[in-house]
């Protein structure tokens, strides 16, 4: 038996509206990450740190040779850390809502299948 909210959504087309809100939001989130990563590196200052020793003055070349044994990646500061946690939380919230809506769609599609709705359409 459908819940009151589910019945209301089926009637008003709310499901489609929410999918239209969440799906672009999910795509935009991923696209933003993509866009952020293909833009130029953070600053000119940091860019200099990856110059080859040949391009740098001798004193700096020696500095570059000293490399840590291991680079452990992760958020650089509290702002980035918070942003990432918020992003993961938002991602899961969007996933939960989309799963709920998709489950309603599955129920509707299965109901139509039971009614042999598609069989008439195939003809």
């Amino acid at each position: 038996m459908k819940s009151r909210l589910a019945r209301r959504w089926s009637r008003t087309g709310m499901k489609k509206k929410i999918v239209f809100i969440f799906m672009p939001a999910l795509i935009m989130g991923v696209f933003t990450a993509f866009a952020a990563s293909i833009q130029q590196p953070l600053s000119e200052e940091k860019d200099k740190s990856v110059q080859t020793p040949a391009q740098q003055p001798p004193a700096k070349a020696a500095e570059v040779q000293v490399q840590p044994d291991k680079i452990v990646p992760g958020p650089k500061n509290i702002k980035e850390r918070t942003a990432i946690y918020v992003f993961v939380g938002w991602l899961w919230a969007a996933i939960v809502v989309l799963i709920y809506i998709t489950r309603l769609e599955i129920k509707e599609a299965d109901r139509l299948l039971e009614l042999k709705f598609y069989r008439n359409e195939k003809k």
Partner: peptide, 20 residues
């Protein structure tokens, strides 16, 4: 010369590079 450095750069300098 550049392979390891460029990966290090992806992980430290490129915005969200380490996540990608």
């Amino acid at each position: 010369e550049e392979a390891n450095k460029s990966v290090a750069r992806i992980m430290t300098d490129v915005p969200l590079g380490w996540i990608i």
